[in-house]
Design a protein around this nucleic acid. Structure first.
Length: 298
DNA sequence: CATCCGTGGAA
DNA sequence: TTTCCAAGGAT
């Protein structure tokens, strides 16, 4: 079977249309790249740019963040969403400072042992920070492969098989160092998914890929079980967000009734949400029975 | 493998 | 207004 993603075509397009994102600047450290990748997990690029600039200035090395309290990091995280990511990043900083010489390791398997670092992020750092020719598979890449290679509108559920598909696409420089081309190829693949081969209304008329299977088949609509979209309104996630927003907005620990006010329609759900924040380590109770962000009590 | 975990903007 | 979805990870 032919190559559905010829590197020359993709890279030529990338040369013209690459976004000027700050974490793509040359010479960044693994730690700076790591921060960007954590922030970009499920949060759009446009909302990450400013916080990322602030964070790399405020916490230039892991030990700097490790010296801060979890609550400081959670407050700086603000409304980027999924605040457990911020907590894990703080944990990660602590481990890096203590066990890894205050640097991000360059080995994928070592990175996979770190808090908050999974299959995608470990390889993204290995590739973009350290130039390694490892497959970097995010939702954009999975969608491009689903269409260009498999002829389907949407990818299936994430699977480790995705890595195999992505490896097959990686350009193998016949005469030289494969690490030279891999990072730019993976960045281009992600960029294509983000800008052209989008989930809704892909602009196939400007796509640089000359032989997309999905287009050749006439862009068949998605078949199979409907893709599930998570609800938000009325869920524990919404309640947790409201509770945490109160604690982010105060310097001092607050009384329980202050938190109880944010959700009165279902008190059992409210109590469950607060308890889950305590279990997750995002919130703590002081000796006085007041509530605060982790590490900001007593 | 399915579900849970925030938030906000666009269609 | 509702729905969809955005550089995932942990369980």
């Amino acid at each position: 079977m032919g190559n559905s993603v010829p590197p020359a075509a993709l890279l030529g397009w990338f040369d013209l249309h690459e976004r000027d994102l700050p974490w793509r600047a040359p010479g960044l450290t693994g730690w700076q790249i790591l921060i960007s990748e954590i922030m970009l997990q499920q949060t759009p690029v446009s909302r990450v740019v400013e916080p990322w600039r602030d964070w790399v200035r405020r916490w230039p090395v892991p030990s700097a963040m490790a010296a801060a309290s979890p609550g400081e990091v959670l407050r700086a995280w603000g409304k980027l969403g999924y605040p457990r990511r911020a907590l894990r990043l703080h944990e990660c900083a602590t481990v890096l400072a203590r066990d890894h010489g205050d640097r991000v390791p360059d080995d994928v398997d070592v990175m996979l042992t770190l808090p908050g670092i999974g299959d995608y992020t470990a390889r993204a750092i290995a590739c973009f920070a350290y130039g390694q020719p490892v497959p970097v598979v995010d939702t954009n890449v999975r969608r491009v492969i689903a269409r260009a290679v498999h002829g389907r509108e949407h990818p299936g559920n994430p699977s480790r098989k995705d890595l195999v598909d992505a490896v097959d696409l990686l350009p193998r420089d016949p005469s030289g160092d494969p690490s030279a081309a891999a990072p730019r190829f993976s960045a281009a693949l992600m960029e294509l998914g983000a800008l052209v081969c989008t989930a809704r209304n892909p602009t196939c008329d400007v796509c640089p890929l000359p032989d997309c299977t999905w287009v050749r088949l006439g862009r068949p609509a998605h078949t199979g079980p409907p893709r599930k979209v998570q609800k938000f309104a009325g869920t524990d996630r919404q309640v947790r967000g409201l509770l945490l927003d109160v604690l982010r907005g105060t310097d001092r620990p607050v009384e329980r009734p202050r938190l109880d006010q944010v959700w009165t329609t279902d008190t059992a759900q409210r109590d469950r949400a607060l308890d889950s924040l305590l279990v997750d380590g995002l919130v703590e109770v002081t000796d006085d029975g007041l509530y605060c962000l982790a590490g900001e009590g007593n």
